[in-house]
Simulated scan of single mutants.
Amino acid sequence: MENSRRHFLKSTCALVAGVSVYPLSGNNANAEMEPAINNIKYALLHDETKCIGCNACVEACREVNHVPEGVTRLSIERTGPFGEYPNQFYHFSRHSCEHCENAPCVSVCPTGAAFINKETGIVAVNADKCVGCQYCIAACPYEVRFINPVTKAADKCDFCRETNLKQGKQPACVEICPTKALVFGNLKDPESELVALLKANPTERFKQDLGTRPKIFRIKAKQGEIIL
């Protein structure tokens, strides 16, 4: 596989300068970017008012998806402390694939390894097709992709598509969260807990101005939510 990767990179290196890292127009989109064909569009809500930054989600993701040390599909970013001692507090936010409906990483992939699953809307990677060119890493405005040191292919969160979801379970991060700060569900199901929460709470999504249409929603932490 290494020889094929080197051959590919040598034959295409002249094209690197011509590749746009933010091709958000649908004109050059991979065929896999068509809308989901079933009544499923998976998304995730992170309630920052409930997150305590314990990193249980990070470790569960690593164990279930066999993520090697040194890289991660998910991280919890802590900012703070805010306020003055002893009334100090932190904010915790999730950093992972946003599962964009208009995904730049899919648009730039020259082999079709990066794709949007038509049945679920999940942005995924076919490691067997990936040649390690790293175009998708450069294109991702959320900086969440990496090269897996074991498979040598691009990797990221896929909502446990090949592990827990195949077994009819929730994503590992959702299952393990001790405060129920994560809610996973189908945006097309009006009766789902996810949709109910999205209707009942003001939420935010990162970098919506880019037109990526991310499917990670956030209930923003208010000042003083997490007190030390």
Rank of each mutant, 00 (worst) to 15 (best):
N3E: 15
S4L: 15
R6Q: 14
S11Q: 15
V21I: 06
P23A: 07
A29T: 05
N30C: 09
E32P: 02
P35V: 08
P35N: 10
I37W: 04
N38G: 05
K41L: 14
A43T: 03
L44H: 04
E48F: 05
E48H: 05
C54L: 05
N55D: 12
A56K: 13
V58G: 00
V58P: 00
C61M: 09
E63R: 13
E63A: 11
V64N: 06
P68K: 10
V71S: 02
T72M: 08
L74D: 02
L74E: 08
S75F: 06
T79Q: 15
G83S: 09
E84A: 15
N87I: 13
Y90A: 05
H91Q: 13
F92A: 04
C97S: 12
C100W: 03
N102E: 08
C105T: 10
V106G: 00
V106K: 00
V108P: 00
C109T: 00
C109H: 01
T111C: 05
G112K: 12
G112N: 12
I116S: 03
E119N: 12
K129Y: 10
G132S: 10
A139Y: 03
A139L: 05
Y142N: 04
F146P: 02
F146I: 04
V150E: 05
V150F: 02
T151M: 09
K152I: 06
A153W: 01
A154S: 12
C160E: 01
R161L: 08
R161K: 12
E162L: 08
T163N: 02
T163Q: 05
N164G: 02
N164V: 04
L165I: 15
L165Y: 13
L165S: 01
K166Q: 14
K166P: 00
Q167G: 04
G168W: 08
Q170E: 10
Q170T: 03
A172C: 01
C177I: 04
K180P: 01
A181N: 02
N186K: 03
K188N: 11
K188S: 05
D189P: 03
D189G: 00
E193G: 02
A196G: 07
L197P: 02
K199W: 03
E204K: 11
E204I: 03
F206E: 15
K207I: 06
D209K: 13
R213T: 06
F217I: 09
R218T: 09
A221W: 01
Q223R: 15
